[in-house]
């Protein structure tokens, strides 16, 4: 697990624990590139996070780090501001939604989605086939000039998928809450992988539905 790292201030050489601003001279500091997204946002390293607190931290830090505030600063300050803000933005984008946060949590534990995950769970495979069949039907309806009917059919598929989506998201939240801070739990990790991969399939299906839906709009 990560240990707090000591760094030296680029301006006054004061040694500090990778703070955003030097405790001695207040100069903006470059966040070490290996800092994890939780620490960048000053949050406990845990997947079940307080989303309101996350947003608040993000805005507070943006107000301190954004390049707009260093336009008249030195080149070092500008570089630190640019790099830190880019990292902050990436961290926030990753953590604010449970799905990319889950994927990032996998990465932090040395795992990745879709690498050796070639086997599609039978339940999912059945769903993919069923949805594609329904999409073809909707497409045929559209081709027959009944665009409104096609939209209605698509609406049903969408509703169905969204229901399954919320169920999977609930699974994800429950998985997150079971992690204890400083140990890797293989069972939880495997379950997380399964849920995330099911979510990825659902998102792809929803995208297909939207594509078909756009085609109907443009008739």
């Amino acid at each position: 697990m990560s240990t707090v790292q000591e760094v030296r201030c680029w301006r006054c050489a004061h040694q500090h624990q990778a703070m955003l601003f030097c405790p001695a001279c207040q100069a903006i500091q470059l966040v070490p590139p290996q800092a994890d997204y939780f620490s960048v946002l000053g949050l406990p390293r845990h997947p079940a996070l307080d989303e309101k607190l996350l947003a608040r931290r993000y805005y507070e830090l943006s107000r301190q780090l954004h390049p707009d505030l260093y336009q008249t600063g030195t080149p070092q300050e500008q570089e630190a501001s640019l790099n830190n803000t880019a990292l902050l933005n990436r961290a926030y984008r990753t953590l604010r939604d449970a799905v990319p946060r889950g994927q990032y949590w996998l990465e932090l534990h040395g795992e990745q989605l879709g690498k050796e995950n070639n086997r599609v769970p039978p339940k999912l495979a059945a769903l993919v086939f069923a949805v594609h069949e329904q999409l073809e039907e909707a497409s045929a309806t559209r081709a027959a000039g009944k665009a409104d009917e096609a939209q209605a059919e698509l609406g049903h598929i969408r509703e169905d998928l969204h229901a399954q989506l919320s169920q999977l998201r609930a699974e994800l939240a429950s998985n997150f809450s079971q992690w204890s801070e400083n140990e890797t739990q293989p069972g939880l990790l495997q379950a997380l992988k399964t849920t995330l991969s099911a979510l990825a399939y659902l998102h792809t299906l929803l995208r297909d539905v939207e594509k078909e839906s756009e085609a109907s709009w443009n008739v």
Binding site: S62, R63, H66, D68, L69, Q71, T72
Partner: peptide, 16 residues
């Protein structure tokens, strides 16, 4: 207004 922020005169508004 944004020019004013960039010149360092104004710090109450921030664009993301």
């Amino acid at each position: 207004v944004q020019a004013d922020t960039l010149s360092g005169r104004r710090r109450d508004m921030l664009l993301l």
